[in-house]
Design a protein around this nucleic acid. Structure first.
Lengths: 231, 231
DNA sequence: GTCTATATCTGGATAGAC
DNA sequence: GTCTATCCAGATATAGAC
């Protein structure tokens, strides 16, 4: 179908490279970072985030020592601590920055679409493509939620429910307009979310089977539509 | 449908209480445990496993200190070390014991069923009910895989693929007999697995919405059948 | 801004009394 | 079989030189 969002198009459309994300983080958190030169700060933030995501996603954040992080990032312990004041703060930084950008892109992709069948498809595509581009961030967010402090943890749970609600609302509106048939939208939204998460949680599985993100998207849309479209 | 396996029936059928599991562990690992009296050993293993699962599932295994574990279990550090020789061994113990029992029960529930539509339903029911009864074990296994040593890690990945294959085989055989229509069985098995895992990974969500395991099972079976049954 | 060196503490593990 | 006391490796965090 020509209306479908292609992965290539999506990648050109959104700018979510590690450098973009770190620059945005720096500009939004200048007051908390002791380093004042943008060029230096962004360059090092890229190293730090990359290293932290790599190590954490391999063995877990709390099993990652700051010595390890410092070695992987190519910065001394002292230098690390000019970018954050504690290991826990680093955890929050990664979570918050990832979440912020993901939400902005996702909402941006689906607003102003009127046709609800199209909107559902677009939301699925956008979610999958985004989690493909930002896989380490999504994986990290999912796995390290339990290590957050109480306050931040509540935010993370809110985040999970927020994206789920996007899908539930599309389904509900579609039902009202007769585009979709009557199904339990809460459950449908919940398991759809689970299948979207599957993509970034088990990437190794699909990589080894040669299934790329577009193929997964096609399958998912086929499955969901075969359930929600009127018979 | 009268053929459907009910949760109540299932619970009576299988014996997977914490005590059962600990006794089985003790009997199978006598040589590695310094405590020789069955009664004492089982009583303490129950305390240890319960405490370890509770703390780990709240904050992660590597964030759990053995002092914390000793406090929660009501045993001294010294006593703990008569049941395992290192923290990593404790991790393996929990993983292996959980996996062993789960596999036995799951396979037991589906062998000797000929009708493939029924077999698919039974496998979904059995998986969900089992993960309901053994929720802490399933959650732990999922979340702590990355903390395992290389060898044990390979086993865990094998485990994930093994259960997935059960579903893929049912779907394949069903296709050959014309019970199911032609769909991508690998992908279908993979996302079905994801939706089964959803149940024990996000229990808090469904608990707060008043959705019990039978309702979730009904929904899932409806969704899957509407996709795989011939139109 | 970045590094090295170090203070301070916590965690896993064990020895030996009971 | 269980506990207390302790060892020591390795962790976070910081001070101060450059």
């Amino acid at each position: 179908m020509s209306d479908d969002l292609k992965f290539k198009t999506f990648k050109k459309l959104v700018r979510v490279s590690m450098e973009d994300m770190c620059r945005e983080y720096f500009l939004g958190n200048r007051e908390n970072i002791r380093i004042k030169k943008e060029g230096v700060a962004v360059k090092n933030l890229v190293k730090i985030f990359n290293a932290a995501l790599t190590i954490s996603n391999a063995k877990g954040f709390s099993a990652m020592s700051l010595r390890e992080l410092s070695a992987e990032a190519g910065l001394s312990m002292g230098a690390l601590y000019t970018y954050f004041t504690s290991k826990d703060e680093l955890l929050d930084m990664i979570q918050r920055q990832g979440w912020m950008i993901a939400m902005r892109v996702l909402l941006d992709q689906i607003t102003e679409i009127e046709d609800l069948r199209l909107k559902l498809k677009r939301a699925i595509h956008a979610h999958l493509y985004l989690s493909e581009v930002m896989q380490p961030w999504f994986y990290f967010s999912y796995m390290e939620t339990k290590n957050l402090a109480k306050e931040e943890r509540r935010n993370a749970i809110e985040a999970e429910l927020f994206t789920e609600r996007i899908f539930v609302e599309i389904l509900t509106q579609g039902q009202e307009k007769g585009v979709f048939r009557a199904v339990d939208v809460e459950l449908a939204g919940a398991v759809l979310k689970a299948m979207l998460q599957e993509w970034y949680l088990k990437r190794w599985k699909y990589a080894s089977r040669g299934i790329n993100v577009e193929k997964y998207a096609d399958f998912l849309i086929d499955l969901v539509e075969s359930y929600v479209l009127p018979r």
